[in-house]
Structure formats: C-alpha cells, structure tokens
Amino acid sequence: MPLPAQLDRAIVTGSLTAGAIGLPYILVVSVLGIMGRINGAEVVWWLLAGLILVGAIGSVTSNNVVHAALSLVVAAMGIAGMFVLLASEFLALVQVLVYGGGVAILLLFALMMTNASDDPIVVDGSQKPFGFGVALVMGVVLVSAMVGASWNATITTVVSFRDIGTRLYRDYGVPFEVASLVLLVALIGAIAIARRDTEESDAA
C-alpha cells in the first residue's frame, strides 16, 4: 500500500514503535496504580517520565528535523508536568510558555529559513559510534552516582507564586536585572547577526 505523501516511512515506524512500547507501558503503570501497588502521584510520575524519555529520544534520534523539534516540545511538556509534581507550578507554566511557545517556534522558524528539512537525511555525523559510547558512559556514571547517594527527604510545601516573587525580586534583584540585560543583548545580537547586510540586500 503506497503511503500518503504527508506520511513518510519514519513517521509510520516511529508511531508504530511508540505504540508498541508505549501502550503496554501505560497499561502496566495504570494496572499497578489501580491495584494500589503505587499511589496516584507515582502513576503520574511514571507516565510523565515515559513521555519525557520518548520525547527526548525522539529529539536526538529522529532523522527528520521537524520531528526532532516537535519531540523536544513533547519532552518539555513532560518536564513541565514534572515541575507540577515537584510543587513548582510557576516553573511549570514558564516551561510551557518558553519551550512550547518560544523555543519551539524559534526552532521551527530556523528550520524553515535554512531549508534544513530539505537536506539529505544524513543528520548524524561520522563519529556517531564514539559519541554513543561516550554518552553511554556518561549516563552510566551519572545514574550510578544518583542511585548511589541516598536522601531522606520529602516534599513539604508548595512553592507559591508569591514566594517566588518575593525571592526573585528581593534576594535576586541584581541577577534578575542582569538576566533581563542578557535577554536584551541576545535579542539585539540575534538581530544584528542574522540580518542581511545592506549591500547584500541592495544586490538582492
């Protein structure tokens, strides 16, 4: 059966893979929750973690750059959920706004303007095996370090918007201003770097 023009092989295989792994996963987590082996928060956590990992893996492995960017948005949304679980609603909102609204749009615009989606589908460099090995060692080291340490701590309070505002403007006023300055500079810099030179535009 010929595939429709909008669907290429990658989308189909990706969707099928996600479905094959994702549905049983969701099922297992849900069943565990219903059986009372894990509580509600944990069910949500595992689902979010799965979502994040799917998004992250997609964003670094996808051969289609647009899919990679969209996968990043998926991961970012999952992370926003994690922030909710971590009792930082404000951060969750910021995450959604900045990543979902800002970064993703920027990336997509850049992809569009560089016609990167038209590039031949060789998105990974020649050092892929080495990179994979190094990253794997890095992940193993990090995870074993995280697992090795133990903390006896639980979430006690919810970080309210008011508290964040107080902390941010009272104690971190100067860094806040500096950050705004950085944003301004980045804005101006991006415009200055990306705009066409006058001669070029004249020639064009």
């Binding site: 964003s59 460099g125 990253a135 995280m146």
Partner: peptide, 22 residues
C-alpha cells in the same frame, strides 16, 4: 535518575548531530 538519563541523551545528541539546529 531521570535528569541523569535526560542529560546523557542530550549529550549524545550534541556529539552525534551534524546540523547546528539539532
């Protein structure tokens, strides 16, 4: 652990991707 795994995935992406945007 979640953050460690995410970090390693990002690390992998930085090392193997060709396109600057990726």
């Amino acid at each position: 652990v979640l953050s460690g795994v995410l970090f390693a995935l990002g690390f992998y992406g930085v090392l193997v991707r060709r396109s600057a945007i990726l």
